[in-house]
Every structure is written in structure tokens, then in C-alpha cells.
Amino acid sequence: MLDALTLATGVAALLLAAWCGWAAYRDQPTKDWHFIGMAVVSLLAVAQLVVGIVQLARGGKPEQGTTIFVAYLLGAFACVPTAGFMSLAERTRWGSVTVAAAGVVLAVLEVRLFDIWGG
């Protein structure tokens, strides 16, 4: 369950990055559709956070330590929304670039999460 969510979130994050990168390439700010995309990715991250905590509560042990696991879960959860709010304040292509960067960062976090859990 957790591994599937990690994979889904990572792929969705990369798609978001490509999509916002395309918007930046076309010199456009983030628009409503992009924010819906960010919401979808954020929802996946929330689901991952919940499932991760439930797994911990049921006695699951991350291979590289619980603290690191929770820290990465929280980081993954905060990543895209933060960039989304920043792009609201910057209505140029650079807002889109920032969200694209957030997507890439989130994908990296997902790879790390996979390792930390010991997939």
C-alpha cells in the first residue's frame, strides 16, 4: 500500500513538474488547472502521510529509522503546497518554474522515502 502510494506520488510529481515546466516554457504563470494538479499531488502526499503513520502505529519499522521516515513524510507533504502559495504571489513564468522545481524535489523525496522504508 505504502509502496504503491510512493510510486504514484512520485510519478504524479514528475508529471506536475513537466506540466508546469511546459507552462514556464510558454511564458505563462500557474493557472487554475495547474492548481488542481497541485491539489491532486498534495492529496496523494496527504494519503501517504496518513498511511505512513498508520503503518507506524501498527508496528511497522522503517529500515532507516522512524524519525527520518516521519521527517521525510512531512517534507513530502509540505513541498508542493508551499511552492503553490509562492507561485500565487508571483504571476509570471517564474511561479511555474518554482512549482516545476517543487515537483522534481518531491519526486526525489519519494525515492528517498522508498529507500527509508526499505522497499
Binding site: 511552492a83 509562492m86 517564474w94 518554482t98 522545481a101 517543487a102
Partner: peptide, 8 residues
């Protein structure tokens, strides 16, 4: 502009 990306 690009400063936003740097801050991020």
C-alpha cells in the same frame, strides 16, 4: 521573478 526560484 527568478528570485522566487532561488528562495524556493
Amino acid at each position: 521573478g527568478p528570485g522566487l526560484l532561488l528562495v524556493w
